[in-house]
Write a protein that binds this DNA or RNA. Structure first.
Lengths: 264, 264
DNA sequence: TGAAAAATGTGGGGCACTCCACAAAAAATT
DNA sequence: AATTTTTTGTGGAGTGCCCCACATTTTTCA
């Protein structure tokens, strides 16, 4: 059942079912095996197998009798390495949230690290005003009553649960804040870069309209390069990371006057 | 065990446990009865009772074997009536989704009925462009790859999981679409009204910028009135509901040339 | 078209969870 | 201290779910 490069036949039974399951999870926090089996007209065992597959991909959190949507921020493919990454992201997020002063105005970028920051910021209850293009960030912070959240307009990109595009950029340009918190795919001595298409311009706009720029990045991403350039090191006020930068990168950061913080 | 205004003794066994449960839900999407019982050193029956109480307060979504964090955003409390309402909402949503033609441009309002519509629209896979102020609607439709989703800017309102405010209205005003799908708190012969603050102006803007206006409303809401007036019956093109309107309302609709559709 | 591979269904044993009613323990009230 | 109220535990019947192995159907590929 490989069909590599072959005629795209109208075959979709298993796939359609799994898409439906994911869709359902966006609406209900929990779905039951038995319920779905009945709705799809398949045996419970088949649904169980779907669950197992989705769970292996990190798209579903398996539970007795059914499954839940995985935590926002837990991303597709949580193997050993990305689990490890989550701990680091949490540390970075907690540290970043601590940099926010009561009454601050902020911009927060989309991404799993910045989402962790939003969680801790909501938990801390620091009163502040936040402008973001990330739907999960908005929902997390909005939950806490204490922060005022402004969402950017734009085209919705499901893979990142965020909005992008010229409308997003224009909206950001019409504001000015105390500090912004940005994530990125990679950082090296020549600057910061991003892989996901359409996000670089949004990040640039946020940096432009903030008095202070904090870059949140996990250790794995130090030293690499992405597809689109976001900005140079000179544009960064502080780097918040899980491990101290080394070698050329460390020197370049120092030369550009970037404050390097290691989240413990 | 009332202790009204009495000395606040250091009694917290039940309360502490329930706080722990909620805390746990912030970290994991699902918790098990058995797991917690063991951790707290209490019987599973006690945890079950905790779950029931939290569930009644809408703080936990009960599932077989455990519980999940409730959906981010709106959760009024699903008692008998709102469960019953869901079936009707689904019927209405399915019918409304069927009114969309391939290539249409739409505006979709925030609300539980319109969210159902978004589900069916995503399922149908009708290619279209949708502008919405509801985060769940955006996420649901965005999932399906087939619709282009534009999100409005504005202040995020956690209770409705939607954005509102002057920026939302201004953004809507700068667009024009084929049809819009609106929900409301109430409808009576004098017009459509809404209770949730800040939504009436958004709905009005959508209606203004659409060639055709579809009002989605469940039977319980026919005949009542809300706090803020949205529009008159003349502004409505079609009413999609779960049961045929009767009496004065039916005559008023007829007089205003509203097409009444009953979703089966 | 026939063989291999994948997906799905079936049946049964076992375990986990639910539900209920009542008993026991702890806390609050008098 | 005795009584009422609240909270928690216990036991047993019933049900849903899990898991495994194997049969059956569907799809893919030679």
């Amino acid at each position: 059942m490989k069909n590599i490069g072959g005629t795209p036949r109208p075959r979709l039974r298993k796939k359609a079912r799994r898409e439906q399951i994911l869709l359902e999870l966006k609406l209900h926090p929990h779905v039951r095996v038995s319920e779905l089996a009945e709705r799809f007209g398949v045996s419970t065992e088949t649904v169980r197998r779907d669950f197992e597959a989705l769970s292996a991909d990190g798209l579903l959190f398996r539970a007795h009798g059914g499954g839940s949507a995985p935590m926002r921020g837990h991303y597709p493919g949580l193997d050993e390495r990305s689990r490890q990454g989550m701990e680091e992201r949490e540390r970075i997020g907690r540290h970043a949230a601590g940099l926010v002063q009561p009454g601050d105005t902020l911009m927060i970028d989309a991404g799993s690290t910045t989402l962790q920051m939003a969680r801790f910021l909501a938990y801390a209850g620091t009163p502040c005003t936040v402008l973001t293009n990330s739907l999960p960030v908005a929902m997390t912070l909005g939950q806490g009553e204490t922060a005022e959240v402004i969402l950017c307009p734009g085209e919705y990109l499901a893979s990142e649960s965020a909005v992008i595009g010229p409308e997003t950029v224009a909206f950001i340009e019409s504001h000015m804040v105390d500090q912004c918190f940005i994530g990125a795919t990679a950082i090296d001595p020549r600057g910061v870069s991003e892989t996901a298409r359409g996000f670089a311009s949004v990040k640039r706009a946020m940096i432009r309209r903030s008095r202070r720029t904090n870059l949140l990045i996990i250790r794995d991403k130090m030293g690499g390069t992405g597809f689109a350039r976001v900005c140079g090191l000179d544009d960064i006020s502080a780097l918040i990371t899980g491990a101290a930068p080394e070698g050329k990168l460390a020197r370049a950061l120092d030369r550009s006057g970037v404050e390097a913080m290691v989240a413990t």
